[in-house]
């Protein structure tokens, strides 16, 4: 069992501290009804998707395609990068790195883009070497599945080519929550995303997605490795979906179906008697 402990609901100041790490975040649309992630969480078309590289001074950024082809990214002064379609349909990786003596920082973010189907499996991208300390989604979400509050998601922590055990990984959200967990002996860890949206409106499109950030630190051979992995997540649909109502409706259909069978049988028997 992977230990999972809710440490505290963070104060805004604490969240601000966490945001200081090298990390990617999406530039949220001004209108919460504008579905910036496109249908089913696999990216919009045409106009490009904006991302911000936080605390990116001195960092180099690149886009890694599903085929592992690399394209340099040039964030502007505010760290803004607009991701254009690569022509390939699959997950892409936004990767930022910064090295200084005794310190190696990496920021990761996976993003689904539309295009022609790619022969490359996403496993090629997620398992490719991109950082000495890597947080690997295990797995990435599939179509019709997005990260959402109250959902449990799994990751693998890897140092070099080996799983990294017993290492703390922190999760912070833009809604102010902070959680922490420790990787198990095989480097695995999981988080249940907090249900921390302050005012949930009914409907998926009515709620602006929030951001979560996983961060892990590991020091070895005098070098501190700091890696972040970010993604957006959505309000739990259970807020506007009633499971009990669904089961009752299903039961109603079943009972109604039995009644129809009985009624039609009675009618045909009466007709036969007449």
């Amino acid at each position: 069992m992977i230990p999972r402990t809710l440490i505290l609901t963070a104060l805004l100041a604490l969240t601000g501290t966490t945001q200081a790490a090298l990390s990617w975040s999406s530039q949220l649309p001004p209108n919460p009804h504008a579905d910036h992630a496109g249908h089913g969480g696999h990216g919009g078309r045409g106009a490009g998707t904006p991302f911000i590289l936080r605390d990116g001074d001195g960092a180099t950024a690149q886009l890694r395609l599903p085929t592992l082809v690399r394209r340099a990214l040039e964030p502007d002064a505010q760290g803004l990068v607009t991701l254009q379609p690569s022509g390939l349909l699959s997950y892409h990786l936004l990767l930022a790195t910064r090295s200084s003596p005794g310190r190696e920082e990496v920021a990761l973010r996976y993003h689904y883009l539309n295009g022609k189907p790619s022969d490359a499996s996403p496993s090629l991208l997620v398992n490719s070497r991109k950082a000495t300390l890597d947080i690997i989604p295990a797995p990435l979400t599939r179509e019709h599945q997005r990260y959402q509050a109250n959902g449990a998601y799994h990751y693998l922590l890897r140092y070099g080519d080996l799983p990294l055990a017993n290492t703390e990984v922190r999760l912070t959200t833009s809604n102010g929550s902070v959680l922490s967990t420790t990787s198990d002996h095989r480097g695995r860890l999981s988080f249940t995303l907090p249900d921390d949206f302050p005012e949930v409106q009914a409907g998926r499109g009515a709620n602006r997605p929030a951001e979560f950030l996983l961060s892990a630190t590991h020091t070895q051979a005098g070098t501190q490795h700091l890696t972040t992995l970010s993604a957006d997540y959505h309000a739990d649909p259970a807020h506007w979906r009633s499971a009990l109502g669904g089961w009752l409706a299903l039961l109603g259909g079943f009972v109604g179906g039995l009644a129809v069978v009985q009624f039609s049988r009675n009618s045909s028997e009466e007709n036969a008697r007449d």
Partner: peptide, 19 residues
Amino acid sequence: VYLDTSSDGYFVLSLIANL
């Protein structure tokens, strides 16, 4: 298995699905 209350349209569709 749910009843979606976010709009009348979603409610009707989810009701039909379960029925």
